[in-house]
Amino acid sequence: MSVDFKKLSIVIPAYNEGPTIHLILDRIKTVELPNGIEKELIIVNDCSKDNTEESILKYKEENPELNIQYYKHEVNKGKGAALHTGIEKATGEYLIIQDADLEYDPQEYHLVLKPVLTGDADVVYGSRFMGGNPHRILFFWHSIGNKMLTFLSNMLTNLNLTDMETCYKLFRTDMVQGLKLKEKRFGFEPEVTAKIARIPKIRIYEVGISYYGRTFEEGKKINWKDGFRAIYCIVKYNIFSK
């Protein structure tokens, strides 16, 4: 049975993304969602030290036809905390997470939405490690680390994801708003996966997406310390914390 809904909330955490935030907003602007679904853009500025705020406010003023909701943290709290704020403010029936850089292509929202629109899914992950879409070739150990984290997460959640750490996660909004999320940095990914997996009769799907990764010189922020934190969170939220 197909599912019709009216609004998709696009939650965008932003920290020091002044040079690219307008570019990703341009890409989102051109996306035409199926069935006339409205876009709600929720941008959370995590106390950036560059011109991120100026870029967002200028874009919002120049594009009044877009439904842009802007929020700002007065102190830097981390990506997870920015996502908490965005999830709390979302009013669409479904929401998707979108990074403020250019690593993920908003034109692929339709790929992530498809299992929802066909009535099959409550949650959809966009995997960088499946399908035949373009992938920039970058860090060997980073990809190995992602796969190891996904493997460990799968062992404890009993899911068979290929990319737990992906940015593109689509949730039924009421479902993810009902979770008590705590992780303020990159531990958000394993925590939300562990807690979503425990929801009775949850229907989780995964689809292949493209990936245009960037280097650390280009602004990539995650590092090896975040990897160790992710391992801690996988164990914590699957074994010691419900």
Rank of each mutant, 00 (worst) to 15 (best):
I96F: 07
P115Q: 11
E108A: 10
D101L: 05
V124F: 08
T85K: 09
V123Y: 03
P134S: 10
W141F: 14
I97M: 13
I96V: 15
V116A: 03
N146T: 10
A90C: 11
G131H: 08
F139D: 15
A100I: 08
G92C: 08
L149F: 07
G86L: 10
H135N: 10
Y94P: 07
F139N: 15
A100E: 02
E88N: 09
F139M: 13
T85S: 03
R128I: 00
L95S: 01
G131S: 08
N146R: 12
T150V: 13
H84D: 01
F151K: 13
K89Y: 04
I97N: 05
G86I: 12
D122E: 14
I137F: 04
M155Y: 00
L156F: 14
T85M: 01
R136F: 06
Y104M: 07
L156Q: 04
L111K: 15
L117W: 04
E108K: 06
Y109F: 15
G86H: 10
Y125W: 10
K147T: 02
Q98F: 00
M130D: 03
H142D: 12
L111Q: 09
P115S: 12
I87K: 05
I96R: 01
Y94S: 08
N154S: 07
H84I: 01
S153D: 06
R128P: 00
G126R: 03
S143W: 11
H142E: 13
W141H: 11
F129R: 02
S127Q: 04
Q107N: 15
E93M: 10
H84E: 09
H135A: 04
A82I: 03
A100L: 05
F129G: 03
T91D: 12
V112F: 02
G131Q: 08
F140V: 12
D122I: 09
H135K: 15
H110Q: 11
